[in-house]
């Protein structure tokens, strides 16, 4: 039972990750391979604040979010006026860097050994101790994030993001400062990933760099695409698959590293099949237009 709760909690956390990535990738059409880096930024912020200081737990959250927004803006400033490929390149570099920081800054992060003993959140006296309490706390956060992203998506702000995705030049001619929209979407997406990371650190009480590598960024990205980029529930479906597939594979009795490899091969293939034959993903609505001219 506890294990099922744990799975559910993981699903919630990954939903926050996929839903936030969806804002940037699905609605705005900007591809990032750094989502796991922001996830890790939040996780390490909370873990370090939790284990090395007596500050209240939300300081870790705030620190992670602030760092995410700052880094996000640096990347945006550097690349958003150029073709979107350069944004993707910069996020790739950022992901590699941050992973290197997680692995090598032993003084702060303990390197590959990771940080253990992250305390549970203490919300004005209520210590979120049991799995059930975690579920409630994280569940509430997840729903809040989902509502947040959805409100943005259906508003005029979201309309402009989708217009930017379809035709940025035309959107500029309509008087919209496209840089502001894109950089805001990027910052919000990164900040929310950081939030998810902080929740993750407190729930697991132990983190190490392995969950925050470029491979994980690609996994989250593929889940958004396969689930359905740009849709409301697609990312949730993606998150569910992401969390439950390893369990399903485990039932087949495969050794864990074989399972991990198979899982990623499956994702990779599904991603390719999806992009070529069903770009809107499992339950998405945006299908990409095919250009009829040759």
């Amino acid at each position: 039972m506890d294990y099922l709760l744990h799975l559910l909690i993981l699903t919630f956390i990954f939903s926050i990750l996929t839903v936030s990535l969806n804002l940037l990738v699905g609605h705005t059409g900007l591809f990032t391979i750094a989502h796991a880096a922001f996830f890790g930024l939040g996780a390490y912020s909370s873990a370090i604040v939790g284990t090395k200081s007596n500050a209240p737990f939300y300081i870790g959250f705030v620190l992670g979010i602030v760092l995410s927004i700052v880094f996000s803006y640096i990347i945006s400033l550097a690349t958003l006026r150029l073709h979107e490929d350069y944004f993707a390149i910069a996020t790739f570099g950022f992901q590699m860097i941050l992973f290197a920081v997680f692995q090598n800054w032993i003084a702060m992060t303990n390197g590959p050994i990771g940080i253990a003993g992250v305390p549970k959140p203490n919300i004005m006296g209520w210590v979120v101790q049991s799995h059930f309490e975690s579920l409630v706390f994280i569940g509430v956060c997840t729903i809040a994030c989902w509502i947040f992203i959805n409100r943005l998506a259906v508003s005029a702000f979201g309309q402009v993001l989708r217009a930017i995705r379809e035709d940025e030049i035309y959107t500029q001619a309509l008087g919209k400062n496209c840089f502001r929209y894109k950089s805001s979407a990027s910052a919000i997406s990164g900040a929310m990933a950081s939030l998810a990371g902080s929740l993750y650190a407190h729930h697991m009480t132990y983190i190490n760099p392995a969950r925050f590598s470029v491979t994980d960024s690609i996994l989250i990205l593929s889940m958004v695409i396969i689930g359905g980029a740009g849709s409301r529930l697609g990312p949730i479906v993606g998150a569910i698959i992401l969390v439950t597939l390893p369990e399903a594979l485990r039932f087949l009795g495969l050794p864990s590293n074989v399972a991990a490899n198979l899982r990623q091969i499956l994702y990779g293939s599904a991603l390719i099949v999806c992009i070529i034959w069903r770009p809107q993903g499992l339950i998405g609505k945006f299908s990409f237009r095919k250009d009829e001219n040759s």
Binding site: F148, S155, A156, F157, Q159, E166, D167, Y170, A173, R289
Partner: peptide, 28 residues
């Protein structure tokens, strides 16, 4: 140039300037 997957109405709405929903706080 137009946003083809939006309706005519939505295209015109997109062009309207200074909407509350344009900024993040207003949207939320």
């Amino acid at each position: 140039r137009l946003i083809r997957r939006l309706t005519a109405m939505e295209n015109v709405c997109l062009a309207l300037p200074n909407q509350k929903g344009d900024k993040v706080i207003g949207a939320l």
